[in-house]
C-alpha cells in the first residue's frame, strides 16, 4: 500500500508542463490568479468567520461531531482550514500547492469522508465565502467575478481530491487481490506419512518463504515421510522460485522427508532448462498419478524389513 508520503512525492514529480495543462483545462487564467491574489489581505479578515460557520454547520451532524470530539482536534483542523484559505488566495499554484491538495484528499479518504460529504461541505464553504465577498468587496459585479475565479480553482481542488479517492480505492483493491492470490497453500494428508501440497498462484519471494516454513512445520506435525508438491497451478517458475523449491526440498530432506515435484508444464520445463536448473535435482514426476506411485515406492522401500 502506498503511503501518503509516497503519493505526495509522486505528485510532486509531475512536471510543470502537466500542471500548466491542468490549470488551462480548468480555464484558470492569469486574470483569475491576479483577481484572487488581490483579496489575499482582505481574506485574512473574514477567513475566521467563514471557518467558524463552516464548522458550526458540520458539527450539527452527529457523525461529524463524533469525529471532532476533542477540542484540540477541532482547533487543529480549524488552523488547517485557515492555512488552506491562505494558500487558496495566495495566487501561487505550483507543484507544492497541488501536492498539498492531494495530501488533504488522502487524509479525507483515510478518515472515511466520502466524495458526497466532501463536495457537499465544499459547496457550503464556497457559499459562505461568496456571501463574505458580497459584503466586503467593492461592487457586486466585482464580487461575482472574484467568486467565479475562486470556483474554477475550487473545482480543480475537488477534481484532485476525487482522483485521490479513486487512486486510494484502486490501491485497496489491488491489495485485496494480492491477498487473494496469497491465500495460504493447503497441506493435505493423503495417507499416514504422505502429504500433498497443491501450489497455486504466483510465488514471490515472500510467499515462497512462508510456504517453505509452513511445509516444514507440517512435516513435523503430520509426521510426513514423503511430500508431493504439485505445481500445476503455478503460472511461472523463474530461477528464484526454482531456488526456493530446491531449498524447501533440501530442508525437508534434513528433517527426514523426501520430496517429489509434479505438474511441471512443458513451458515451465523449458524455462527451467533455459535458466540452467538441473531437473533431476527437483525430482520431478510428470503428473500427480506418477508422483503418487513414486511416493508409494519410497514409503514401502522404507517399510520393508
Amino acid at each position: 500500500m502506498l503511503t501518503a508520503q509516497q503519493l505526495n512525492s509522486d505528485f510532486e514529480s509531475k512536471t510543470e508542463g502537466e500542471i500548466k495543462k491542468l490549470l488551462s483545462w480548468s480555464a484558470i487564467e492569469d486574470a483569475d490568479v491576479e483577481r484572487i491574489a488581490s483579496i489575499a489581505s482582505v481574506s485574512e479578515d473574514f477567513s475566521d468567520a467563514v471557518i467558524q460557520k463552516f464548522y458550526d454547520h458540520i458539527l450539527s451532524f452527529e457523525e461529524a461531531a463524533d469525529m471532532f470530539a476533542s477540542e484540540s482536534t477541532l482547533e487543529r483542523v480549524k488552523r488547517g482550514q485557515k492555512e488552506y484559505f491562505r494558500q487558496l488566495t495566495a495566487g501561487v499554484y505550483d507543484q507544492k500547492y497541488f501536492a498539498e491538495r492531494k495530501r488533504i484528499g488522502q487524509i479525507h479518504e483515510t478518515a472515511g469522508i466520502g466524495p458526497a460529504l466532501y463536495i457537499g461541505a465544499y459547496a457550503f464553504y464556497l457559499n459562505q465565502v461568496g456571501l463574505e465577498l458580497l459584503e466586503r468587496v467593492g461592487s457586486p459585479e466585482e464580487a461575482f467575478r472574484l467568486h467565479l475565479s475562486l470556483l474554477k480553482l475550487a473545482h480543480l481542488d475537488m477534481a484532485l481530491a476525487l482522483q485521490t479517492y479513486v487512486e486510494a480505492r484502486e490501491t485497496t483493491i489491488e491489495a485485496q487481490q494480492r491477498e487473494m492470490s496469497e491465500l495460504p497453500t493447503p497441506v493435505l494428508q493423503v495417507k499416514a506419512g504422505l502429504l500433498l501440497v497443491p501450489v497455486v498462484g504466483t510465488l514471490d519471494s515472500h510467499r515462497a518463504r512462508s510456504l517453505t516454513i509452513a511445509l516444514l512445520e507440517s512435516i513435523q506435525s503430520m509426521r510426513a515421510r514423503v511430500l508431493v508438491l504439485d505445481i500445476t497451478g503455478v503460472s511461472a517458475v523463474d530461477s528464484m522460485v526454482a531456488n526456493h523449491l530446491l531449498q524447501t526440498m533440501t530442508a525437508a530432506r534434513l528433517m527426514g522427508a523426501h520430496s517429489i515435484i509434479t505438474g511441471i508444464s512443458p513451458t515451465v520445463a523449458e524455462a527451467l532448462v533455459k535458466i540452467g536448473v538441473d531437473a533431476t535435482s527437483l525430482n520431478t514426476f510428470g503428473d500427480l498419478e506418477r508422483g503418487f506411485e513414486e511416493a508409494e515406492r519410497i514409503m514401502s522401500a522404507h517399510r520393508e524389513e
Binding site: 516444514l216 534434513l254 527426514g256
Partner: peptide, 28 residues
C-alpha cells in the same frame, strides 16, 4: 532436526552428506 533449524542450515549451505536423516527414532 527442527523445521527452523533445517531452514537455517539450508540457507547457510550446510548439508549432512554422510548421514541419513529421519523424522524420529522409529523412522530411523
Amino acid at each position: 532436526i527442527q523445521p527452523d533449524v533445517a531452514l537455517s542450515m539450508v540457507l547457510l549451505g550446510l548439508t549432512l552428506r554422510d548421514a541419513e536423516t529421519a523424522l524420529d527414532l522409529d523412522a530411523a
